[in-house]
């Protein structure tokens, strides 16, 4: 599965806003944090507003706010706003008779893969993803520097 750019930008926005649902952020805030195009992100934000996942807040200090529940909103709900979740198995043109059963079987296999993909994405909520990201960041954080006392204990 290749996650399309629109889906990725939407996930950045949903995670950022879902982290603190009361907080308002602008497109520029999110684009700067993730190093992405504000122009492209703005289009994605409009789509997210239309879907009801986020709310646009007007006025001074306005921006966007998460409108759902991060403990319930799943990755599938975000990603399928931007891309189809079904694999396609076909060649342009008319297939010969021998190709028909091959294509049918490959479609069945692709269906199995799609079902698993959907099951995975539909059971990971934004909150679960945020927790996993925090755990990964902690695990990869550099260890605190040793104290001078600890260094003294090291054998010469």
């Amino acid at each position: 599965m290749k996650i399309q750019k629109g889906s990725l930008l939407a996930l950045y926005a949903a995670l950022e806003l879902g982290q603190e649902p009361e907080r308002q952020l602008s497109t520029a805030d999110i684009a700067a944090k993730y190093g992405v195009s504000a122009h492209h992100l703005a289009k994605v934000m409009r789509h997210l507003v239309r879907s009801g996942l986020i709310q646009a807040v007007r006025g001074v200090g306005g921006g966007y706010r998460f409108a759902g529940n991060p403990r319930r909103t799943t990755l599938l709900e975000v990603i399928q706003l931007f891309e189809p979740m079904e694999s396609t198995v076909e060649l342009a043109g008319t297939a010969g008779a021998a190709a028909t059963p091959v294509i049918a079987e490959l479609r069945s296999i692709a269906g199995e893969i799609d079902e698993l993909t959907r099951a995975v994405l539909d059971t990971i909520t934004l909150r679960t993803l945020l927790n996993a990201i925090e755990r990964r960041a902690k695990a990869s954080a550099p260890s605190p520097p040793r104290t001078g006392r600890a260094r003294q204990r090291r054998p010469a």
Partner: peptide
């Protein structure tokens, strides 16, 4: 079961993966 979203989501939230 892939359709058992409640339990799958719970186990995912506890850090379990495929």
């Amino acid at each position: 079961a892939v359709t058992n979203k409640v339990n799958l989501s719970f186990f995912r939230s506890m850090g379990m993966t495929s």
